[in-house]
């Protein structure tokens, strides 16, 4: 099993490092472009407010969908078992989360330094600290990591569902699952329940995230354990 996990992880890293790197480089280019614009036009009233967490979470969601679709069949074709895929996946999930959080915070620190150094007043750049300035930085970094992990897992499950059941069944399933949001009494209950995952709420608990991850990984395992490598959307 260890050998399989090692090879699977190798495949995951080979598959993903260029994509992750490209995203952050494009994002850096985008930030520097706006930084130049705001610096050049400081006399005009142009103000730029950048937030790095939102784009990186959107990237995580899209990347997670593609990740399952493109790695699962490839790895099974190489002979690895579905169990080893899941173990390697969990390790990769941790590595991915750490990488994203580190890069995101390096960006935040570097941009903050540049803004202070050049006294640029009309360019603000925030991370997840935009939510609440009272919370300790270490807690915010940890919370950001939790969000990356959550987004990656949820969108991976969506991708795995689409892969296994195709559009029709998956969409019906997702509608049924998301239906309570649209019923007032359920929605209130749900909001109360989700408060434990929101850092600014008093019900917030890091432990809840761990339980959530275990449940989500369990769901992914149920989908993947006997999964065919034929994609029900493309039938290939």
């Amino acid at each position: 099993m260890f050998t399989q996990i090692k090879f699977n992880l190798y495949y995951f890293l080979k598959y993903s490092y260029k994509t992750v790197l490209t995203f952050w480089l494009i994002f850096l280019g985008f930030l520097l472009f706006f930084l130049c614009i705001t610096t050049l036009f400081q006399s005009f009233e142009i103000e730029f407010v950048g937030v790095n967490t939102l784009p990186s979470l959107i990237f995580t969601a899209i990347f997670a969908v593609l990740f399952f679709k493109e790695t699962f069949p490839a790895i099974i074709k190489f002979g690895a078992s579905r169990t080893s895929y899941l173990f390697a996946y969990v390790l990769y999930l941790i590595l991915f989360t750490i990488t994203m959080s580190i890069i995101s915070n390096v960006y935040l620190f570097a941009m903050g330094y540049i803004i202070d150094f050049f006294h640029i007043d009309n360019f603000s750049y925030y991370g997840i600290n935009i939510m609440d300035h009272q919370i300790a930085t270490s807690q915010l970094i940890l919370y950001e990591s939790f969000l990356y992990m959550f987004f990656f897992l949820v969108f991976n499950i969506v991708a795995a569902l689409l892969y296994k059941f195709g559009y029709k069944v998956s969409i019906v399933f997702l509608i049924i699952v998301s239906f309570p949001i649209f019923v007032r009494s359920f929605a209130d209950e749900l909001f109360h329940f989700f408060a434990q995952f929101i850092i600014t709420e008093k019900e917030y608990s890091q432990f809840s995230f761990f339980i959530l991850y275990i449940i989500l990984i369990g769901i992914l395992w149920l989908i993947v354990r006997n999964q065919s490598i034929i994609d029900k959307i493309t039938n290939k």
Binding site: M1, Q4, A74, K77, A80, S81, R82, R225
Partner: peptide, 19 residues
């Protein structure tokens, strides 16, 4: 799902073999 056997199989299809 049995790696002991599948590691000894190399299956090359006419398409969709590689990323």
């Amino acid at each position: 799902n049995n790696y002991e056997q599948t590691k000894d199989i190399c299956f090359i299809m006419e398409s969709n073999n590689f990323y």
